[in-house]
């Protein structure tokens, strides 16, 4: 290969229109980008990231910069204190760029947040905690609320709910 030993820079343009310069050593950890680095650097291209904003890309880059062994400790605080919306953005970015370790780390954190609600949460608690929006039709939501009210949180609401045929 004719590429120089000097670390190259890969340029990205984020969804909020910011240009980001990322060292090659980090960019190779993005599986999606890895194979195009030679071409991109040789032609001075900028890779567009239509669904990753600058703030999220900065977190992903920071994650990738840490040595694999230290990663968990160093990123623990950032990931653990991030609210659901940030975790969602991180998941989208990590999935798009294919950074497997980060996908695992964040999904682990998301499920931990649900478990840490403490009691057995209802769907509304889960949605609030990790910032998920329900896309069920209003009549399904209404029926679900009614069942939760009449049968209480510890009853077999969901078995009934599902067997009621409202949801396929």
């Amino acid at each position: 290969m004719s590429s120089s030993k000097k670390s190259r820079i890969v340029k990205f343009k984020t969804s909020d229109d910011k240009t980001f310069e990322v060292e090659e050593a980090v960019a190779v950890q993005f599986e999606t980008i890895k194979s195009m680095i030679d071409y991109v650097c040789a032609n001075d291209c900028t890779i567009p990231l239509p669904n990753v904003n600058a703030k999220t890309l900065a977190m992903v880059v920071e994650w990738c910069k840490k040595h694999a062994d230290e990663r968990d400790q160093l990123m623990e605080v950032d990931v653990d204190e991030a609210p659901g919306a940030v975790l969602y953005d991180l998941l989208v970015a990590a999935t798009y760029l294919r950074v497997e370790d980060l996908i695992h780390r964040v999904s682990q954190r998301v499920s931990k947040m649900v478990i840490e609600i403490g009691k057995l949460p209802e769907e509304e608690d889960v949605r609030k905690t990790i910032n998920i929006k329900s896309d069920f039709p209003p009549q399904v939501e209404e029926e679900l609320r009614k069942l939760r009210r009449t049968l209480g949180p510890l009853s077999d609401v969901l078995v009934l709910f599902v067997s009621s045929g409202l949801l396929e």
Partner: peptide, 8 residues
């Protein structure tokens, strides 16, 4: 079974 399946 108790909550995740009716989140979305």
């Amino acid at each position: 079974l108790k909550s995740a399946q009716t989140v979305c």
